[in-house]
């Protein structure tokens, strides 16, 4: 009997449900709807793939693709939190229903070879490279004395090399870089080869050298 009041009151009040899809509700601000990526900012570090609880992201940094399985994604937001470039976003709109199961693949530009980045800022990186190379050369066993003696030349050649690499863009740079020291003599030729070698050692930690551009990438992605 006590329910009578509630039930009769309902007759005169607006309904608690709405006639979806004729009338839709405004979505709240923080709603976790669907995952999306700005592929241009992605550096393919694969942090999102490693941290995803449902393993729905696959990243291929050789080909530069970022693949999401939208039906496996639980929109938890862990990948958004760990992304170093903040290129993942969770939008408000819920994902539309899909008619068949499929993967969403975004194609981005793979990681750029380092000389391209070094050429755009010519002086400073070259000096840094020179210092780093000096330290590396001091540590590295092959012909340390030669490289120390040839420091100013090394810096020149190093400064020249990135510029040449910018022009040549990849494998062609290697023979040209070797050519330059050849003009100055055999000693420096060997030095040049060592110079070519030391940048290899250095690129292990940061960027990719032009002569071994493709090989470096293969090493890293392996």
């Amino acid at each position: 009997m006590y329910m009578t009041k509630n039930v009769l009151r309902n007759l005169f009040k607006k309904s608690a449900t709405r006639l979806y899809p004729l009338e839709k509700r405004e979505i709240f601000e923080n709603v976790r709807g669907a995952l999306d990526i700005e592929i241009d900012k992605c550096i393919f570090c694969r942090a999102c793939q490693l941290r995803c609880p449902s393993q729905c992201i696959t990243v291929d940094n050789k080909a530069g693709t970022w693949t999401l399985d939208p039906m496996a994604c639980v929109v938890c937001g862990v990948c958004v939190a760990v992304c170093p470039k903040k290129c993942l976003h969770i939008g408000k709109q819920y994902r539309a229903p899909l008619l068949e199961r499929g993967l969403i693949t975004h194609q981005g530009t793979p990681r750029v070879p380092k000389p391209k980045a070094a050429a755009t800022a010519p002086v400073v990186p070259a000096e840094q490279n020179a210092e780093a190379e000096v330290q590396k050369a001091a540590v590295a066993t092959p012909a340390p004395v030669n490289t120390e003696a040839a420091t100013p030349e090394i810096s020149e050649t190093v400064a020249e090399k990135p510029v040449e690499a910018d022009i040549s863009q990849a494998a062609a740079a290697a023979p040209e870089a070797v050519e330059k020291p050849e003009a100055t003599g055999t000693e420096i030729e060997t030095n040049a080869e060592q110079i070519l070698e030391t940048p290899q050692a250095e690129s292990e930690k940061t960027e990719v050298k032009p002569d071994d551009a493709e090989q470096k990438k293969e090493d890293l992605s392996a």
Partner: peptide, 21 residues
């Protein structure tokens, strides 16, 4: 119907109605 209000609070503060993570 009363429960819907609480579901709205969860959705607005945590992003999801039930599994709020």
């Amino acid at each position: 119907k009363v429960r819907e209000r609480i579901m709205d609070i969860m959705e607005a503060t945590a992003g999801n109605r039930v599994v709020i993570s």
